[in-house]
Design a protein around this nucleic acid. Structure first.
Lengths: 221, 221
DNA sequence: ACCTGAACACCGTTCAAGT
DNA sequence: ACCTGAACACCGTTCAAGT
């Protein structure tokens, strides 16, 4: 698999793990599979990561490592927070397995994410929210960004990509064959519910949804 | 383990799986462990669920089966949507493993969830949103409700509950020992970020956050 | 219809040993 | 410092067979 015999480093391992996860799903990222791809013994990986949890943290770190929030400036916090959110979404969207990676770990353990989070906290504090409220809002923001990025990410091929398309068709048929009198809206909206989402709608409408909620609460204090 | 030798049904299996998941985390829910708890061979479960994915769907179904949305009434959609959201949160909060269960499957495959979803779609349509927008909003609502419920759920004991408390203390110390000049807010807010959340704050502020975002977008169309 | 037994092809991880 | 080999204690799942 590895022709050049690249040097085995924590970074190289995380990169290969992300490639596998993006192409075949996070479930395919296995210590043994990863080692075999890297032309090495499974145990070799334990030198660089103490266990699989640390490896996934490494994946997350490499994932958001590509994103650095702009430094603080003089614009209103709303604009800066939108910038941050959109940047995060763009970064996460580059990796189909981003959502699964983020879900499996605690964001607070990811080194490269600390700067993003601190920045977000500064903005919500500047908006007038309390400490507890800021914690809630920033966690909520991460959640929402992840969901938005995932809904429009490049198609993730569980097995072959063709099998995935098959599953989508199956699910739409399941929805459409539901009793119309019980679930009128599900039947009517089966297509949009199940198919790949329009990135533009999510980038504008989705981000608006999240940020205008925050703005509304900031305005009423 | 089982003294009464209860009849083995899909329902009994899902219930036991939820008990294990709530007490020890979803990772502890294993076909073999579950079978042993039920006093039966692992293969016996395959009669009732075709594979593990179907079992987890069964768990989700049993989870939200305890919640039925109130029938449509004449109140404004905002109030009805808030009712729905709060009901969903209360239901999910009863199970510490609810979040992990929901994350592992597609909500559209959970029978008992279809009624909830159809109801939510009706309300967003009534609010004037388009088909695509309604899909986005209802998925977003499920996500947010799950996150809110999880943040305030009964403590989930990974190993013993004591080990979990240990992890929390560790993480707070990690945050507090970060360089203050680089991450001033993380250091300052280490406690609130890492500790169990105040249910009241999440129930009011958190739900407000989500619903006021929806209301704001509805108002501007 | 409902369950068992044995087997297959995997996992993550430990521990001692090599270089 | 960095990697290997062998072993342990698990997984989910299939398939044939029992009642």
């Amino acid at each position: 698999m590895s022709t050049v015999a690249k040097k085995l480093t924590a970074r190289a391992i995380a990169e290969r793990a992300l490639e596998i996860g993006d192409a075949e799903g996070l479930d395919a990222v296995t210590i043994r599979r990863l080692a075999s791809d890297l032309g090495v013994t499974p145990m070799a990986l334990y030198w660089h990561y103490k266990n699989k949890e640390q490896l996934i943290i490494g994946m997350a770190d490499h994932l958001v490592g590509g994103f650095a929030p702009k430094p603080a400036d003089e614009r209103p916090w709303q604009e800066q927070l939108r910038d941050l959110t959109e940047g995060l979404i763009r970064t996460l969207r580059a990796h189909p397995c981003a959502k699964d990676v983020i879900e499996q770990i605690d964001a607070v353990t990811v080194p490269s994410f600390l700067a993003v989070w601190d920045h977000a906290l500064r903005l919500t504090r500047a908006a007038g929210f309390s400490v507890e409220e800021s914690c809630l809002i920033t966690q909520y923001l991460l959640h929402s960004a992840t969901a938005i990025a995932d809904a429009t990410a490049a198609q993730q091929a569980s097995p072959s990509g063709e099998a995935e398309a098959q599953r989508v068709r199956r699910k739409r048929l399941d929805l459409q064959s539901l009793p119309v009198e019980s679930y009128p809206h599900l039947v009517e909206m089966a297509g949009p519910l199940v198919e790949r989402k329009d990135p533009h709608l999510y980038d504008t409408f989705g981000v608006d949804l999240v940020l205008s909620g925050i703005a509304a609460l900031a305005a009423r204090r």
